[in-house]
């Protein structure tokens, strides 16, 4: 379990985090979302003990990351956005070196390394130098490293950035596996559709402050239903007609009618009478993106 308590962090005079508090329970995946520079990475770096907070604390399985750093570190795995390791070191050798900090003897670490490398999909690159690794491979390596001590808590910082679809699917599967095993997973991401797919709860941060924490059910209920309509043409006349039945948004080649006061079949009939041919109409699922921008918009 990860508990972040009243954390403040300054960089010079700039207050990067302002009284940030939330928790990630065992067996739960929590998405951490916010605009660039909102404070996601700073929070995660404080939570894993790489940065020191100016106020507040982070408890990992009850151990303070500031006062009981070593005990807390034993229980947490971290995959940074841009994993940086010794470029000239061979992956497996470096893994063995890092495992030494957890008191794992070299022989056992080597065997464990090969197993974990297979699990994360870099088994064949175990003896390559890390500078030969792609960004995706480095993330997989970082993941293997984060599992050295089989921790109960994981923090993934923008882990999906720069990954191919296979890599994204792999991380998704792994996060769900961790959840099933009762571990706590916090992950920040710009890919809101992935957060929506994975998270049980979402924490919203804006300008260093937590502005909302919602379960996915709450988010779905907050987002207004909408109709996605594709017609033979999109013009001002169409927007005007639809405007009588709700808020209209044009996106790509479709028009969205938010919170419609008319049902689909009646709308098709109305549009046909005005000379528009409806090619496709469907009810769309409310998205996290919509809620995200609504919450951020309220803050602005």
């Amino acid at each position: 379990m990860i508990v972040i308590e009243n954390v403040d962090k300054y960089f010079g005079k700039f207050k990067a985090l302002d009284n940030v508090s939330f928790e990630v329970r065992n067996g739960e995946i929590v998405g951490y979302v916010g605009l660039n520079g909102a404070g996601k990475t700073t929070t995660i770096r404080i939570a894993v003990g790489v940065l020191y907070p100016d106020k507040g604390d982070v408890l990992i399985n009850g151990y303070s990351i500031t006062r009981e750093k070593r005990k807390a570190s034993y229980h947490v795995g971290w995959v940074p956005e841009l994993p940086i390791f010794e470029p000239d070191a061979k992956a497996l050798d470096y893994f063995v070196y890092l495992a030494g900090y957890y008191g794992i003897p070299a022989g056992e670490a080597r065997r464990m390394g090969r197993e974990l490398f297979e699990k994360v999909g870099i088994g064949e690159a175990a003896d390559k130098k890390l500078k030969q690794y792609s960004q995706g491979m480095k993330k997989r390596f970082a993941l293997a490293v984060s599992m050295i001590n089989n921790p109960d808590n994981f923090l993934f910082d923008e882990v999906l950035n720069g990954l191919d679809p296979e890599g994204i699917a792999f991380f998704r599967k792994l996060a769900l596996e961790f959840k099933r095993e009762g571990r706590a997973v916090l992950f920040s991401s710009h890919i809101l559709s992935e957060v929506e797919n994975l998270a049980d709860r979402v924490v919203f941060i804006h300008k260093g402050r937590i502005i909302a924490v919602h379960t996915m059910e709450e988010i779905k209920s907050m987002a207004k239903p909408a109709l996605r309509i594709k017609t033979d043409r999109v013009d001002e006349g169409l927007v005007k007609i639809l405007g009588e039945y709700g808020e209209v948004r044009v996106k790509d080649d479709a028009v969205y009618l938010i919170n419609p006061s008319i049902d689909s079949s009646s709308l098709i009939e109305k549009l046909s009478q005005k000379g528009y041919r409806v090619e496709e109409i469907n009810r769309v699922r409310p998205s996290l993106e919509e809620v995200f921008f609504k919450i951020i918009g309220e803050q602005k």
């Binding site: 750093k69 070593r70 841009l82 010794e86 890092l98 957890y102």
Partner: peptide, 14 residues
């Protein structure tokens, strides 16, 4: 410069 000090600080060391 390389950023690898972060990995070191993350480990169970003080």
């Amino acid at each position: 410069m390389s950023g690898s000090i972060n990995q070191l600080l993350f480990l169970p060391v003080k």
